[in-house]
Design a protein around this nucleic acid. Structure first.
Length: 478
RNA sequence: CGGGGUGUAGCGCAGCCCGGCUAGCGCGUCUGCUUUGGGAGCAGAAGGUCGGAGGUUCGAAUCCUCUCACCCCGACCA
């Protein structure tokens, strides 16, 4: 079970899978392409959910639940939407032993069925905006699944809103992009680049798609969340209309946005090292693990250790801690186990420490002796809280430095090709799809996003040399 | 769907090319004793329709035919 983990440099995707399975985050299900999220992985997901949910509620959104099944005809209403999703639909053709009149699609996303309901609910400008989110599972028949990053069934939240004007819908789309960015940076310690998708990469049926893009430990890009301005596309095909204050019928402007369990994959690949997971303290299911070390056949020493541990626990307040008193496992074994699981902070406490009225702190983000320090027993709680804070901010800094150190601005197309082999290329693009296609064909890299933050100057397209107004991020992506 | 690969104990594998006694090994599990400051040691034990079906043969994990499943690489994708 505790085989050595393959180093990242040797085989990154092997490392990724091994870490997930050995840390008991998830396991393969007996159905191809599906995974089982195990309690430890789910606990992390619950913390992700909680932090996002707080932000949604704070901006006026409410949760609701829509059906898992969607009539096939709904999916077919919006032309681009069908084209985008048709190849990956799971379709129910039989129910109760009989062939269905109309096949039901297991939702791949819920714009259509929610749009249909909105058309029933919305009559007047006074009904707007409608701001609803759902936490749900969806199914997409993926050809090449990968734990957390791309599974046939995955868990996510999907927000769906309807507004009176395009301006309001755009505002909403960007507000959510800000929420996603704030969550990724401040909770997950993942430095993301918020930006706009190119037309070829946008959501099927959207006017404009926005994204947060992150760099993983192998320097490939991962789309960690998306927010779409759907314009009136879905409102028109589902008749989502309202009467405005001038007594004129108007189509609504809708948005949709989502973050999925892929975020877990992003956390793993942003922070993990060759010992296993490294979880950001703010999201870690267990923030602090205490490993008591006791000599055998010495009840007195054992009692002193356990009493001291108990006393320390009383002072820990809101810290999410766990005492690992599985004495049948050696201390070294337990250290390794918690490192594999990415617990941010570990306290080791044995008779030798108690003699000196101290404990050993070990930071997960700084492996080996470097990350160890002695702390007086009286200061444990305060030090633990400070250290969790600094681990959180150091993790963000380390990930930001890594990304910046692997982001380059090419001088010419040859240089560009080299860069996207192994990092992000930040460069100018004229906006023509043929340049985008050429890059994809020759390098497998795609436009990850056109960052919201743009320099004042203009430039020339890295591919064709034409004048370009927007600087974009190109990279190979998951 | 194209290319490659794997199914043998809970997990990871060897054995197959070249058929032959009771199908092995490592990890894990169970029991006992000794151990506990970086993945403990010794001794003992349990655990198998060799993915499935059919065939060849005195004899099949091994050869043949069919079949199922999964994994990896590509096209699609949050």
């Amino acid at each position: 079970m505790f085989d050595k983990i393959t180093p990242r440099s040797e085989d990154y995707s092997k490392w990724y899978t091994q870490v997930i399975r050995q840390a008991e985050m998830a396991d393969y299900a007996p159905v191809r392409g599906c995974m089982v999220v195990r309690p430890y992985g789910y606990a992390l997901w619950e913390n992700v959910k909680e932090q996002l949910d707080i932000r949604f509620k704070a901006t006026g959104h409410q949760n609701a639940a829509f059906p898992l099944f969607i009539p096939m005809s709904f999916i077919e209403k919006e032309a681009e939407h069908v084209e985008g999703f048709k190849p990956e639909l799971a379709v129910v053709t039989h129910g109760g032993g009989k062939k269905l009149e109309e096949p039901l699609v297991v939702r791949p996303t819920s714009e259509t069925i929610i749009g249909y309901m909105y058309s029933q609910w919305i009559q007047s400008y006074r009904d707007l905006p409608v701001l609803i989110n759902q936490w749900a599972n969806v199914v997409r028949w993926e050809l090449r699944p990968r734990l957390f990053l791309r599974t046939m069934e995955f868990f996510w939240q999907e927000g769906h809103t309807a507004h009176a004007t395009h301006e309001e819908a755009e505002e909403e789309t960007l507000r959510i992009l800000d929420i996603y960015t704030d969550f990724a940076v401040n909770e997950a310690a993942i430095p993301v680049i918020p930006g706009r998708k190119s037309d070829s990469e946008k959501f099927p049926g959207a006017l404009t798609s926005y994204t947060i893009e992150a760099m993983m430990g192998d320097k490939r890009a991962l789309q960690a969340g998306t927010s779409h301005d759907l314009g009136q596309n879905f409102a028109k095909v589902f008749d989502i209309q309202y009467l405005d204050s001038n007594q004129k019928q108007q189509h609504c402007w809708t948005t949709s946005w989502g973050v999925s369990t892929r975020m877990i994959g992003a956390i793993i690949m942003t922070h993990g090292d060759d010992q296993g997971l490294v979880l950001p303290p703010r999201l870690a299911p267990t923030q602090l693990v205490i490993v008591p070390i006791i000599p055998k056949n010495n009840d007195e020493a054992k009692q002193v250790v356990t009493q001291t541990v108990d006393a320390i626990c009383e002072t820990l307040g809101s810290v999410r801690y766990h005492v690992d008193d599985r004495y049948e496992y050696s201390p070294g074994w337990r250290f390794n186990e918690w490192e594999l699981k990415g617990v941010p902070l570990r306290i080791e406490i044995g008779p030798r420490d108690i003699e000196n009225d101290q404990v050993v702190f070990a930071r997960r983000d700084i492996p080996g002796k470097e990350g160890k320090s002695f702390v007086p027993i009286a200061d444990v709680a305060e030090t633990a809280m400070q250290m969790l804070d600094s681990i959180q901010s150091d993790m963000l800094k380390r990930a930001t430095d890594f990304r910046d150190a692997n982001t380059f601005e090419p001088n010419d197309y040859e240089g560009f090709k080299e860069i996207v082999e192994n990092g992000f290329a930040r460069t100018w693009w004229c906006g023509k799809e043929e340049c985008e296609d050429k890059v994809k064909e020759e390098t497998q890299a795609t436009i990850r996003c056109i960052p919201m933050e743009q320099p004042d100057s203009d430039g020339t397209c890295i591919v064709c040399g034409a004048e370009a107004e927007e600087r974009t991020i190109f990279a190979r992506a998951y």
